[in-house]
Protein backbone atom coordinates (compact mmCIF):
# COMPACT_ATOMS: atom_id res chain seq x y z
CA UNK A 1 0.00 0.00 0.00
CA UNK A 2 2.85 2.36 0.89
CA UNK A 3 6.29 2.01 -0.67
CA UNK A 4 9.27 4.01 0.55
CA UNK A 5 12.35 3.99 -1.60
CA UNK A 6 15.74 5.50 -0.73
CA UNK A 7 14.11 8.26 1.30
CA UNK A 8 16.50 10.95 2.54
CA UNK A 9 15.73 14.12 4.47
CA UNK A 10 18.24 16.62 5.73
CA UNK A 11 17.64 19.42 8.23
CA UNK A 12 20.68 21.66 7.90
CA UNK A 13 23.60 19.43 8.81
CA UNK A 14 21.46 16.86 10.53
CA UNK A 15 20.51 13.88 8.41
CA UNK A 16 17.09 13.04 9.81
CA UNK A 17 16.37 10.22 7.36
CA UNK A 18 19.05 8.33 5.48
CA UNK A 19 18.12 6.02 2.62
CA UNK A 20 15.01 4.44 4.10
CA UNK A 21 13.61 1.46 2.17
CA UNK A 22 10.35 -0.13 3.24
CA UNK A 23 7.04 -1.36 2.05
CA UNK A 24 3.87 -1.46 4.14
CA UNK A 25 1.08 -3.70 2.96
CA UNK A 26 -2.54 -3.88 3.96
CA UNK A 27 -3.17 -5.83 7.13
CA UNK A 28 0.10 -4.79 8.75
CA UNK A 29 0.22 -2.96 12.01
CA UNK A 30 3.65 -1.45 12.29
CA UNK A 31 5.38 -0.38 15.46
CA UNK A 32 7.84 2.35 14.53
CA UNK A 33 10.44 2.57 17.24
CA UNK A 34 13.81 4.13 17.86
CA UNK A 35 15.55 6.49 20.27
CA UNK A 36 14.61 10.18 20.49
CA UNK A 37 15.64 12.03 17.36
CA UNK A 38 15.99 8.87 15.28
CA UNK A 39 13.70 10.22 12.56
CA UNK A 40 10.39 8.58 13.44
CA UNK A 41 8.28 11.72 13.34
CA UNK A 42 10.11 13.00 10.26
CA UNK A 43 9.26 9.76 8.45
CA UNK A 44 5.60 10.15 9.37
CA UNK A 45 5.64 13.80 8.30
CA UNK A 46 7.08 12.80 4.94
CA UNK A 47 4.26 10.28 4.52
CA UNK A 48 1.78 13.07 5.23
CA UNK A 49 3.43 15.53 2.89
CA UNK A 50 4.15 17.89 5.79
CA UNK A 51 7.90 17.58 5.30
CA UNK A 52 9.23 17.42 1.76
CA UNK A 53 11.82 14.66 1.19
CA UNK A 54 15.18 15.62 -0.36
CA UNK A 55 15.65 12.45 -2.42
CA UNK A 56 13.92 9.14 -2.89
CA UNK A 57 10.34 8.29 -3.59
CA UNK A 58 7.21 7.74 -1.54
CA UNK A 59 4.36 5.91 -3.14
CA UNK A 60 0.81 5.35 -2.06
CA UNK A 61 -0.93 2.61 -4.01
CA UNK A 62 1.61 2.88 -6.78
CA UNK A 63 1.56 6.66 -7.27
CA UNK A 64 4.05 9.27 -6.14
CA UNK A 65 2.48 10.86 -3.10
CA UNK A 66 4.61 14.00 -3.09
CA UNK A 67 2.65 15.17 -6.13
CA UNK A 68 -0.81 14.48 -4.87
CA UNK A 69 -3.02 15.75 -2.08
CA UNK A 70 -6.06 13.58 -2.62
CA UNK A 71 -4.39 10.53 -1.07
CA UNK A 72 -4.56 12.20 2.35
CA UNK A 73 -8.29 11.50 2.32
CA UNK A 74 -7.26 7.90 3.09
CA UNK A 75 -4.98 8.82 5.99
CA UNK A 76 -5.92 9.39 9.58
CA UNK A 77 -3.17 11.18 11.49
CA UNK A 78 -2.80 11.65 15.19
CA UNK A 79 0.12 14.03 15.84
CA UNK A 80 2.47 13.76 18.80
CA UNK A 81 1.38 17.19 20.00
CA UNK A 82 -1.99 18.21 18.64
CA UNK A 83 -2.03 21.94 17.95
CA UNK A 84 -5.37 23.48 17.14
CA UNK A 85 -6.69 26.97 16.36
CA UNK A 86 -7.21 28.81 19.63
CA UNK A 87 -10.44 30.50 18.73
CA UNK A 88 -12.28 27.34 17.73
CA UNK A 89 -14.43 25.10 19.87
CA UNK A 90 -14.18 21.30 19.78
CA UNK A 91 -17.52 21.00 17.98
CA UNK A 92 -16.53 23.57 15.37
CA UNK A 93 -13.28 21.72 14.71
CA UNK A 94 -15.08 18.46 13.96
CA UNK A 95 -17.66 20.31 11.94
CA UNK A 96 -14.96 22.00 9.86
CA UNK A 97 -13.21 18.71 9.14
CA UNK A 98 -16.48 17.19 7.95
CA UNK A 99 -17.29 20.30 5.95
CA UNK A 100 -13.90 20.07 4.18
CA UNK A 101 -14.69 16.55 3.03
CA UNK A 102 -18.25 17.36 2.07
CA UNK A 103 -19.96 15.79 5.10
CA UNK A 104 -19.35 12.07 4.43
CA UNK A 105 -22.09 9.91 5.94
CA UNK A 106 -20.27 6.87 7.18
CA UNK A 107 -18.25 8.39 10.02
CA UNK A 108 -16.80 6.63 13.03
CA UNK A 109 -17.77 8.47 16.20
CA UNK A 110 -16.90 5.68 18.64
CA UNK A 111 -13.98 7.57 20.18
CA UNK A 112 -15.99 10.79 20.40
CA UNK A 113 -18.51 8.88 22.49
CA UNK A 114 -16.08 6.84 24.54
CA UNK A 115 -13.94 9.86 25.44
CA UNK A 116 -17.07 11.87 26.23
CA UNK A 117 -16.00 14.60 23.82
CA UNK A 118 -19.50 15.37 22.63
CA UNK A 119 -20.35 16.79 26.04
CA UNK A 120 -17.39 19.19 25.61
CA UNK A 121 -18.24 20.45 22.12
CA UNK A 122 -18.64 24.00 23.46
CA UNK A 123 -15.18 24.12 25.00
CA UNK A 124 -12.66 26.31 23.20
CA UNK A 125 -9.60 24.39 22.03
CA UNK A 126 -7.17 26.76 23.78
CA UNK A 127 -8.60 25.79 27.17
CA UNK A 128 -8.00 22.05 26.75
CA UNK A 129 -5.58 20.05 28.87
CA UNK A 130 -2.85 18.06 27.12
CA UNK A 131 -4.75 14.82 27.63
CA UNK A 132 -8.03 16.14 26.26
CA UNK A 133 -6.14 17.50 23.28
CA UNK A 134 -4.80 13.98 22.67
CA UNK A 135 -8.33 12.63 22.85
CA UNK A 136 -9.46 15.16 20.23
CA UNK A 137 -6.51 14.18 18.00
CA UNK A 138 -7.32 10.49 18.38
CA UNK A 139 -11.01 10.96 17.59
CA UNK A 140 -10.09 13.02 14.51
CA UNK A 141 -7.67 10.37 13.26
CA UNK A 142 -10.35 7.65 13.29
CA UNK A 143 -13.44 9.59 12.28
CA UNK A 144 -13.32 9.20 8.49
CA UNK A 145 -12.48 5.46 8.61
CA UNK A 146 -9.12 5.92 6.84
CA UNK A 147 -7.29 3.00 5.23
CA UNK A 148 -4.00 4.20 6.73
CA UNK A 149 -3.77 5.19 10.38
CA UNK A 150 -0.69 7.09 11.51
CA UNK A 151 -0.50 7.47 15.26
CA UNK A 152 2.47 9.35 16.69
CA UNK A 153 2.84 8.43 20.37
CA UNK A 154 -0.90 7.95 20.80
CA UNK A 155 -0.91 7.05 24.48
CA UNK A 156 1.52 9.70 25.69
CA UNK A 157 -0.32 12.11 27.98
CA UNK A 158 -3.48 10.03 28.20
CA UNK A 159 -4.71 8.78 31.56
CA UNK A 160 -4.58 4.96 31.97
CA UNK A 161 -8.30 4.58 31.33
CA UNK A 162 -8.24 6.64 28.13
CA UNK A 163 -5.06 4.87 27.00
CA UNK A 164 -6.83 1.52 27.35
CA UNK A 165 -9.85 2.83 25.43
CA UNK A 166 -7.57 3.93 22.61
CA UNK A 167 -5.61 0.68 22.57
CA UNK A 168 -8.83 -1.32 22.43
CA UNK A 169 -9.97 0.88 19.57
CA UNK A 170 -6.73 0.30 17.64
CA UNK A 171 -7.11 -3.46 18.17
CA UNK A 172 -10.69 -3.35 16.89
CA UNK A 173 -9.67 -1.37 13.82
CA UNK A 174 -6.89 -3.75 12.83
CA UNK A 175 -8.08 -5.51 9.71
CA UNK A 176 -6.91 -6.89 6.43
CA UNK A 177 -7.31 -3.82 4.27
CA UNK A 178 -5.77 -1.29 6.59
CA UNK A 179 -2.26 -0.21 7.53
CA UNK A 180 -1.64 1.09 11.02
CA UNK A 181 1.64 2.81 11.89
CA UNK A 182 2.25 3.56 15.56
CA UNK A 183 5.25 5.13 17.22
CA UNK A 184 5.73 4.86 20.94
CA UNK A 185 8.34 4.49 23.61
CA UNK A 186 6.08 2.25 25.65
CA UNK A 187 7.00 -1.09 24.12
CA UNK A 188 4.48 -3.07 26.14
CA UNK A 189 1.70 -1.03 24.48
CA UNK A 190 3.09 -1.81 21.05
CA UNK A 191 3.46 -5.50 21.88
CA UNK A 192 -0.33 -5.90 21.99
CA UNK A 193 -1.26 -3.88 18.94
CA UNK A 194 1.43 -4.47 16.30
CA UNK A 195 2.29 -7.21 13.86
CA UNK A 196 5.58 -5.71 12.66
CA UNK A 197 8.46 -3.74 14.08
CA UNK A 198 10.41 -1.08 12.25
CA UNK A 199 13.49 0.12 14.08
CA UNK A 200 15.10 3.44 13.19
CA UNK A 201 18.37 4.79 14.54
CA UNK A 202 20.12 8.01 13.47
CA UNK A 203 17.82 8.18 10.46
CA UNK A 204 18.76 4.72 9.24
CA UNK A 205 16.49 1.72 9.08
CA UNK A 206 17.99 -0.96 11.35
CA UNK A 207 15.42 -3.66 10.68
CA UNK A 208 11.83 -4.24 9.66
CA UNK A 209 10.50 -7.64 10.76
CA UNK A 210 7.31 -9.18 11.93
CA UNK A 211 7.10 -9.54 15.67
CA UNK A 212 6.89 -13.34 15.80
CA UNK A 213 10.06 -13.74 13.73
CA UNK A 214 11.82 -11.24 15.94
CA UNK A 215 10.76 -13.07 19.08
CA UNK A 216 11.82 -16.50 17.81
CA UNK A 217 15.14 -15.14 16.54
CA UNK A 218 15.95 -13.63 19.89
CA UNK A 219 14.30 -16.30 21.97
CA UNK A 220 12.37 -13.71 23.97
CA UNK A 221 8.66 -13.58 24.64
CA UNK A 222 8.26 -9.85 25.21
CA UNK A 223 8.86 -7.18 22.57
CA UNK A 224 10.86 -5.00 24.93
CA UNK A 225 13.30 -7.77 25.76
CA UNK A 226 13.56 -8.81 22.12
CA UNK A 227 14.46 -5.28 21.08
CA UNK A 228 16.99 -4.97 23.90
CA UNK A 229 18.50 -8.27 22.77
CA UNK A 230 18.85 -7.08 19.17
CA UNK A 231 20.34 -3.77 20.27
CA UNK A 232 22.91 -5.51 22.42
CA UNK A 233 23.90 -7.73 19.52
CA UNK A 234 24.23 -4.71 17.22
CA UNK A 235 26.46 -3.00 19.76
CA UNK A 236 28.64 -6.11 20.06
CA UNK A 237 28.96 -6.42 16.30
CA UNK A 238 29.96 -2.78 16.05
CA UNK A 239 32.59 -3.29 18.71
CA UNK A 240 33.92 -6.38 16.99
CA UNK A 241 34.23 -4.65 13.66
CA UNK A 242 35.87 -1.56 15.18
Amino acid sequence: MIAIHNLTKQFGRLRALDGIEAEFSAGQSIALIGPNGSGKTTLLKCLLGMARPDTGSLQFEGADLTRSDAYRASIGYMPQIGRYPDNMRIGQLFDMMRDLRGYPENVDEELLDEFGLKAMFDKPLRALSGGTRQKVSAALAFIFRPSVLILDEPTAGLDPLAAEVLKAKILRERNTDRVIIVTSHILSDLDDISTHVMYLMDGKLQFFKDIETLKTETGETRLGLAIANVMRRHANENQASA
Binding site: R83, P85, D86
Partner: peptide, 17 residues
Protein backbone atom coordinates in the same frame (compact mmCIF):
# COMPACT_ATOMS: atom_id res chain seq x y z
CA UNK B 1 2.00 33.22 12.27
CA UNK B 2 -0.98 32.84 14.58
CA UNK B 3 -2.62 30.56 12.04
CA UNK B 4 0.26 28.11 12.09
CA UNK B 5 -1.76 25.55 14.06
CA UNK B 6 -4.64 25.92 11.65
CA UNK B 7 -2.31 25.46 8.67
CA UNK B 8 -0.64 22.45 10.29
CA UNK B 9 -4.03 20.89 10.82
CA UNK B 10 -5.02 21.43 7.21
CA UNK B 11 -1.85 20.13 5.54
CA UNK B 12 -2.63 16.66 6.93
CA UNK B 13 -6.02 16.84 5.18
CA UNK B 14 -6.70 16.19 1.51
CA UNK B 15 -6.26 19.81 0.43
CA UNK B 16 -3.30 21.24 -1.46
CA UNK B 17 -0.90 23.79 -0.03
Amino acid sequence: YNSYEFIELLVAQPVSR
